[in-house]
Design a protein around this nucleic acid. Structure first.
Lengths: 194, 194
DNA sequence: CTGGAAACTTACTCGTGCGTAACATTACGG
DNA sequence: CCGTAATGTTACGCACGAGTAAGTTTCCAG
């Protein structure tokens, strides 16, 4: 039933989705949807929570803070893109819809900020270990760069069923780890062969 | 009048914006808005076109293809963030709203794709000059990384009035040009002193 | 069988807001 | 002055879709 909702929301968007369609696709009638999941907003929030829980748990499992920085980054990216690849509809609902729509932006912002904060912390830790210290805003900007780039490639991945999530992760890893300068000189980052 | 529309759309979002409010803010009555700009959708498209024209012209002026790659990138980013800083409302309308909403996503996608294509071409050119050739998908991924990161930082910039656009551009330049590896080792990219 | 509770559906109400028809006001040429 | 055209405004029609009241079927206890 939530699956039906996610599907419809991702296809139509929150506003253009109507409850009748969700009900029909779930194979029940509208008042049942209201009985079980409540109003349209509550239903959407329910979808949101489920998808974001899936994503966050996937990420948490992937990036072990005891690993070296590049490994953390690699695993985090891989976990993320694998999630998106496996839940394309969920990704759509989570981001494309929710980030803009007024009643939910707060919810989604919180989640995004949590991710940014985790990345910021890891960056900070890695840099301290190198004996360096960076201003908070610089750290935030780096984390936002990473998150934004990931979202952008995630959208692309969601629209290209043939693209392999691991490959997408490698592409991004190349870009953010090595940087354009290194890339132009022919350097390449390769995933570890496990 | 378009200004009023952009303001309302950016504040409320397309769906929550109602024509009465736009009319009131423009200082005319609703039928006048219809007479001059047509339906709500047409009005939104009009806003979209104007904002995107501003942005694209700003970008085109900034990144001269005869410059060396890092200079192109630097100027492009600087131009972009200066645009966002100067037209926060416009940025909101252009991206936060339009990218998701069904009837406009096509329009905005086209524009975004145009930007991605320009970047792809420049990258390709720069790489060829180094005697290297890269698969189209890799080029696209690099361009998408850059665009996604820019959008992410643009959102941040739009929400932080104190942040200087040039500074934001420098932050991103550091991240994408040098890469995390170099950054962790203490390298820094600095803007040219004109 | 039958009473009635649980599970579900049909068919409605009602608010909202886009778009417009009908009415008012100003400008101006004769 | 007065007709009439340009430029507005007020007040409404109407569709759409969220949420619900009233009716219907299913299921089981006695």
């Amino acid at each position: 039933m939530l699956d039906a909702a996610v599907l419809v929301f991702s296809r139509r968007g929150f506003h253009h989705a109507n409850m009748d369609e969700i009900a029909e696709l779930s194979g029940v009638s509208k008042p049942m949807v209201y009985a079980y999941l409540g109003t349209k907003e509550e239903l959407f929030i329910a979808c949101l929570r489920r998808e974001s829980a899936r994503l966050v748990s996937g990420l948490a499992a992937a990036a072990d803070p005891t690993l070296p920085p590049d490994q953390q980054l690699w695993r985090g990216l891989k976990g993320f893109f694998e999630f998106v690849g496996a839940h394309r509809d969920g990704w759509s609902v989570l981001y494309r819809q929710a980030r803009t729509q007024q009643p939910f932006s707060a919810e989604i912002s919180r989640m995004r900020e949590a991710v940014v904060e985790v990345i910021t912390d890891r960056l900070d830790g890695a840099l301290r270990q190198e004996g360096r210290q960076v201003k908070p805003d610089d750290l935030t900007a780096m984390a936002l760069t990473l998150v934004g780039a990931s979202e952008s490639l995630a959208d692309w991945l969601a629209d290209h069923p043939d693209e392999d999530p691991g490959r997408t992760a490698t592409r991004l890893m190349n870009a953010v780890w090595l940087g354009a300068d290194q890339l132009m000189r022919g350097s390449t980052w390769r995933p570890p062969t496990p």
